[in-house]
Design a protein around this nucleic acid. Sequence first.
DNA 1: AACGTATCTTTACACTGTAAAGTTAAAGGA
DNA 2: TCCTTTAACTTTACAGTGTAAAGATACGTT
Lengths: 197, 197
Amino acid sequence: MGEYHHGDLANALLQSARAVLNEKGIHGLSLRACASHAGVSHAAPTHHFKSLRGLLTELAVIAYDEFTLALQTRFQQVLTEEPQVRLQEVCQAYVDFALKEPKLFELIFSSIPLDHDNPSLLESGAKAYQQLTGIVHPVFDAKGLSEDKREQAEALIWSIVHGYANLLLNEQGRYGADCKEASNVKLPNLSLLGELL
Amino acid sequence: MGEYHHGDLANALLQSARAVLNEKGIHGLSLRACASHAGVSHAAPTHHFKSLRGLLTELAVIAYDEFTLALQTRFQQVLTEEPQVRLQEVCQAYVDFALKEPKLFELIFSSIPLDHDNPSLLESGAKAYQQLTGIVHPVFDAKGLSEDKREQAEALIWSIVHGYANLLLNEQGRYGADCKEASNVKLPNLSLLGELL
DNA sequence: AACGTATCTTTACACTGTAAAGTTAAAGGA
DNA sequence: TCCTTTAACTTTACAGTGTAAAGATACGTT
């Protein structure tokens, strides 16, 4: 806890990593760039995170936590207790997070190699998942579905949101970041599909 | 067209790239590994593809074409002309392709840097998109929707499929490739949402 | 005060993409 | 046939990367 040369380099490096990530993108991020950004030697990170993958994993934990918090906060801000309205609102929060923190979102939900057996990551990931299921459950609970059908329905719901966010980020990555005036995109009302399918 | 040392190195390299991609994954693929796999010097690819990005871009073109073909083929195999049934079937083909060629799917739909202004890529990408819209359109055509609503509905449909495929690949990448007995996953019937939302 | 240890730096190495120059083979014209 | 030009590679070289190992330094503890 004492102050060495730097004080709390681990967190400083995570912050640097986040900065570099947002500036250069995931594929432009390098361990040495993070170190340089934090003002330390290029081998310093190795001591705090075993490897680049280790650093990215810890950053993913932060991402998961912020993600969960964003959903939770939005959920609590909804005035109604109508499950359907709450779901729609949290789905919108899901999309909003993806647009507000595209790189962190990508870090979590892409194939970038992380330590997927890291306890912190597992815990934060589980919490996020738990948060999600806790929100969809009430929507289908009262409808008297079989376990099977309910799981299918939940999978479809999250597929919509996740796919929507992903496709948005794809467009954004390819045709410029402001093609949709970022973080102001409205997810269509899910009930629209109810009328049509 | 004449035979030099190799004959058609460009295609050989693409094939090698595909092999390496499927074996080592996208983040394990290297230009030098492709060259070595094709039995040529490490700098040979540069002459045919400007860079690694160039090679991946050409491989993405192949991926797009196979993707489009897969959807098209499935579409034509459907016996009914019922738009809704056809849609479900093509959506299943979408998911099947993602599971059968996860690396190619990832190559296309992830943030891996490609030459997104490459004419071949633009064309193949456009054809894929055209194939997709051509299939959803009939589903909503007869329903007398506003232009706006129809676009929203289409976006939601593709979000479902795309998100479903992505989430599947995520699971697969993390918890082993055979956690769902690959390429045998049934996309829930979309009409399920119609009953519930 | 002195030792041990955590924290960082220096050095080193294998690997990467890519540029540049050298080499070889095919092609085309006199 | 010979010569030139050009395409298809190889060789060499260099900057950048992750990471391991050893050296230096300041802190905490006894």
